[in-house]
Simulated scan of single mutants.
Amino acid sequence: MAYIRLDLQFFADEKTEKASPKKRQDSRNKGQVPKSNDINTALILLIVFLFLWLFGGAILGTTMTDILKHVFQSYLLLEVTEQNFEMIFYDLIMQAATVLLPVLLMALIAGVFSSYIQVGALFTTEPLKMSLSKINPLKGLKRLFSMRAIVDLLKSLLKITLVGTLVFVILWFNLEDVMLLSQKTVEDGFHVIAQLTALLGVAVAVLLLFLAIPDYLYQKYDHEKQIRMSKKDIKDEHKNMDGDPKIKSKRRQKQMEMAMSRMMQEVPKADVVITNPTHFAVALRYDEENADAPIVVAKGVDFVAQKIKGLAAKHDVVTVENKPLARALYAQTDIGQQVPEDLFKAVAEVLAFVYRLKNKQVN
């Protein structure tokens, strides 16, 4: 029996169920989302090199030429002093920033776009929180020799092989231009190198983008595997969301007791209690100023009916036995509702009897 109990506990804790919407949202709030860094890298490279290929000559070429002219025409004529060195350093930094700013801006846009198409709009500081488990050496060793680490190693080897092959092929087809660089002017040589670099960058980026698609699919599969839930997890989640059934039962019982108490407080104010006589009891009150018809202030069967009749007798509320009317009122009305139209006549006759009875008692 002990072995069977342990096996059942093992299967209950085994994570075989898909994650619930709440578990997915909780994981997302913690920054745990399926995301491929390879897609980010590939898109950043692609957009940056496309930008350099299309606009690099107009932006970088002119700016770099102006910088070189200014260096050789002005800076070389200055004395080497601390003030001049600071001035030259500041100027070169600002000019370099002017050159690099458009490229960095395109890289930023590409990074944000690649993350957005994978995970949507998400901002969380949860991954930045300090956690000792992140620097646990045992967990580090476990991650180092995990299946994910092996997959990452194989991916890296595949990427290195394919990228190296692609670069070799492109250089082989442009080998003549490379070999003739020594016979070209500096401007023409720079143009050839820039075009070849942009071509290599775009080609490598496109290759990495194709390789990133299966990586994203694997990351999505691995994420789904990581957030799986056991049957016990699902039950615990339902308990936390809906409340413990025992607590809910006690809460419901307490609400019923409070409703019963409020109902019993209205019985002494009733004009009449119509009974079955043993199984049903319905208490009515008629206020001409506030209602067009009598209102049911209390009703019950069996034990509750007996309690209503007891309170009525204690507070001198008239009790009238009418089996069909008592059953009809109990079935067709709720507490606080007016008497239905089809029962007006029967209820009016009962109330008339009650009022005549009260008048006789007064006289």
Rank of each mutant, 00 (worst) to 15 (best):
residue 48 V to W: 05
residue 59 I to M: 14
residue 44 I to E: 06
residue 96 A to N: 15
residue 194 A to R: 04
residue 174 N to D: 09
residue 275 T to G: 07
residue 261 S to H: 12
residue 363 N to K: 10
residue 253 Q to T: 00
residue 95 Q to D: 13
residue 103 V to D: 01
residue 96 A to T: 15
residue 151 V to Y: 06
residue 83 Q to I: 13
residue 251 R to Y: 07
residue 111 G to W: 10
residue 21 P to R: 09
residue 302 D to H: 11
residue 83 Q to D: 15
residue 151 V to C: 06
residue 157 L to T: 06
residue 229 M to H: 02
residue 325 L to P: 02
residue 313 A to S: 08
residue 93 I to L: 14
residue 244 D to F: 09
residue 184 K to H: 08
residue 305 A to W: 02
residue 135 I to N: 08
residue 245 P to K: 01
residue 247 I to D: 07
residue 275 T to R: 05
residue 57 G to H: 08
residue 165 T to R: 15
residue 100 L to F: 13
residue 318 V to M: 09
residue 219 Q to W: 08
residue 48 V to L: 01
residue 280 F to C: 10
residue 313 A to V: 07
residue 214 P to M: 06
residue 304 V to H: 11
residue 181 L to Y: 00
residue 142 K to W: 08
residue 61 G to K: 05
residue 119 V to D: 02
residue 273 V to T: 14
residue 290 N to S: 13
residue 258 M to C: 06
residue 357 L to Q: 13
residue 135 I to H: 10
residue 147 M to R: 14
residue 130 M to K: 10
residue 322 N to C: 02
residue 259 A to I: 05
residue 257 E to R: 13
residue 74 S to M: 12
residue 103 V to P: 03
residue 297 V to F: 07
residue 239 K to S: 02
residue 157 L to N: 01
residue 330 Y to N: 13
residue 284 L to W: 03
residue 55 F to K: 13
residue 54 L to W: 11
residue 36 S to R: 11
residue 111 G to L: 02
residue 165 T to D: 05
residue 306 Q to G: 14
residue 111 G to K: 01
residue 203 A to I: 00
residue 261 S to Q: 13
residue 150 I to M: 12
residue 141 L to E: 09
residue 244 D to I: 04
residue 90 Y to H: 13
residue 122 L to Q: 15
residue 180 L to D: 02
residue 229 M to W: 01
residue 283 A to M: 07
residue 18 K to T: 05
residue 183 Q to L: 05
residue 297 V to N: 03
residue 10 F to V: 06
residue 291 A to H: 14
residue 235 K to A: 01
residue 153 L to F: 14
residue 141 L to V: 06
residue 315 H to L: 12
residue 7 D to K: 12
residue 194 A to W: 07
residue 237 E to T: 00
residue 18 K to Q: 09
residue 137 P to D: 01
